[in-house]
């Protein structure tokens, strides 16, 4: 067992974990953060994407012990004061989902993308989300939602 301290969605946790425990299993099974789904389990699909110290990572490909001392943000921590994050709002308004399984990962990857590029072109959004697979939508509404969120965020935080 190894002792880890992590901050997840603003709350500090200390836990003893087996070194082989994956971050996604720690989040889901130990902390009950089931908002982060497991998709492919092979680092391909991006459904389990979370922010680790502010950058997108696939939590099925990180050991919980590697996250020791880090700050983790899951889909359950992106809203604030009961207000959805602008990316969440835009996904809702543009209907950027069908089954919704990829949505948490898409939203976190989009938040990371918008930090680097506050006004991404359609192509930049598609490149930025290349690690996140959606098997329902054909991506059109997802790209639209990210660009809409970008516009909203530029208006509210000039």
């Amino acid at each position: 067992m190894a002792r880890i301290s992590v901050k997840v969605d603003g709350i500090a946790y200390e836990d003893d974990v087996e070194p082989r425990l994956l971050l996604v299993h720690y989040l889901r099974d130990r902390l009950g953060k089931t908002g982060t789904p497991i998709g492919c389990d092979t680092t391909n699909c991006g459904a389990c994407t979370v922010l680790l110290d502010g950058r997108s990572v696939k939590s099925c490909s990180v050991l919980a012990v590697q996250a020791d001392g880090c700050d983790v943000t899951t889909i359950e921590g992106v809203s604030s004061n009961g207000e959805w994050h602008p990316v969440q709002k835009a996904f809702h308004e543009e209907h950027a989902l069908q089954c919704g399984y990829c949505t948490p990962g898409m939203i976190l990857a989009s938040i990371d993308l918008l930090k680097d590029d506050p006004d991404p072109s359609e192509d930049a959004v598609r490149q930025g989300l290349e690690g996140n697979l959606c098997r329902c939508t054909g991506y059109c509404n997802i790209v639209r939602a990210v660009r809409r969120a970008a516009q909203e965020m530029r208006v509210t935080t000039p």
Binding site: T43, G46, L52, S56, V57, K58, A109, L113, E130, G131
Partner: peptide, 9 residues
């Protein structure tokens, strides 16, 4: 190489 999330790690 792969995608942004993979390149972060």
């Amino acid at each position: 190489v792969a995608d942004p999330a993979v390149r972060h790690r």
